[in-house]
Amino acid sequence: MGADKFDPNFTQNVIDATGPNASARTREIIGPLIRHIHDFAREVNLTVDEWMEGVNLINWAGQMSDDRRNEAHLLFDVIGLESLVDEITFAAAANAPDAHTATAILGPFFRHDAPMIPNGGTIIKNPVADGIVTYMHGKVVDSLTAEPIPGVIIDTWEASTNGLYEQQDPEEHACNLRGRLTTDENGEYGFYCLKPTPYPVPDDGPAGKILKMLDRHPMRPAHIHLITTHDEYMPITTQIFSSDDKYLKNDSVFAVKDSLIVDFTPLEGQR
């Protein structure tokens, strides 16, 4: 190796070991990934003990993950990777003249089996004394024509006032604060939910360990999740944030966007 501290050809040899049947996109992703990981290890002079600590952290995330909790997903969230990928994926659309509603991360607590509810119905299955019942409503329109889009399925979910999503809470009703509904002929939708409240992401696993190591808090600002889907349109995954939340500028997963911050205002009369 002469005067070189590291074999200058080592990383390229690893990349070149990729077989001929690997797809072009696989090569495009994995080659730079290997290069950046190797450069990172050299830059910080990563030790064997530190390497094993990282391996154990990833193993721990896998061991904690199940259909109720995706710890690996959360681990990447707290280092901002999902929010960055969201930015990259939707950057072109966000800068277009006909820009649609801004996207936001999916997060680790989405479920595919939320029940259908009627438009104007409720996702509250277990009322809580400290919850503020809220009527959330809106209209889905074509970003090019501004014409309403009927038949859009809106999948929504939120945490309860105790800071837990229903699958985290063994005492909670199944699919409480989750539901799917369809926009009407005018593209309009509405449903009763709880006014979102801030909550901590689970910090008893690898993600929490990273937060503690970095002297960071685990709090997420008050928000509710939405996914819109329609056979003729691209889906949109987003979150709506409450303007009165103190964590808007310091979200533990870096997901807040200014255009997604709204005022939750008291409803005049009874809907």
Score class of each variant (00 low, 15 high):
Ile236Lys: 01
Pro218Phe: 02
Ile240Asp: 00
Arg180His: 07
Phe254Pro: 00
Tyr135Cys: 12
Lys5Ile: 15
Asp113Ser: 09
Pro115Phe: 15
Met52His: 08
Ala17Trp: 11
Glu232Tyr: 15
His225Ile: 10
Glu71Thr: 03
Asp244Gln: 11
Thr182Phe: 11
Ile154Phe: 12
Ile224His: 10
Val201Lys: 00
Pro108Gly: 02
Ala159Phe: 07
Pro206Ala: 12
Asp66Thr: 07
Asn59Gln: 08
Ser242Cys: 05
Asn59His: 02
Glu158Cys: 03
Phe40Leu: 12
Ile132Gly: 09
Asp142Gly: 07
Lys139Val: 12
Tyr192Ala: 13
Asn119Lys: 10
Lys249Arg: 13
Ala92Phe: 12
Thr156His: 07
Asp204Ser: 06
Phe241Gly: 01
Ile124Phe: 11
Gly107Lys: 03
Asp49Trp: 01
Gln63Ala: 14
Val85Phe: 15
Ile227Val: 13
Trp51Ser: 01
Ser143Thr: 13
Ala102His: 05
Glu53Phe: 11
Leu106Ser: 09
His230Thr: 14
Gly107Cys: 08
Gly190Met: 02
Leu211Trp: 01
Glu71Ile: 01
Asp155Gly: 05
Glu87Met: 07
Ser83Val: 10
Asn119Trp: 07
Ala96Tyr: 10
Tyr192Ile: 12
Phe90Ala: 02
Arg271Met: 04
Lys125Ile: 00
Leu74Gln: 05
Ala102Asn: 07
Thr183Leu: 12
Phe6Ala: 10
Val55Thr: 10
Ser160Met: 06
Glu147Trp: 05
Ala255Pro: 03
Asn126Val: 10
Gln12Phe: 13
Met52Leu: 08
Lys125Gln: 02
His36Cys: 06
Ile123Gln: 02
Glu171Asn: 02
Ala102Ile: 03
Asn162Val: 06
Thr103Trp: 06
Met136Val: 00
Gly269Trp: 14
Ala93Gly: 00
Glu171Thr: 03
Ala146Thr: 15
Glu71Arg: 02
Lys125Leu: 06
Gly138Glu: 04
Ala255Met: 05
Tyr192Asp: 08
Ile261Lys: 05
Ala61His: 13
Ser252Asn: 12
His112Phe: 14
Phe110Cys: 10
Leu81Trp: 04
Glu171Pro: 00
Leu164Gly: 04
Asn59Thr: 04
Val48Thr: 02
Asp130Ser: 08
Gly107Ala: 06
His112Cys: 09
Asn95Ile: 06
Leu248Ile: 03
Glu28Phe: 13
Ile34Lys: 04
Lys257Glu: 08
Ile124Ala: 08
His112Ile: 14
Thr122Tyr: 07
Tyr165Ile: 01
Met213Val: 09
Ala72Asp: 05
Tyr189Arg: 06
Arg25Ser: 08
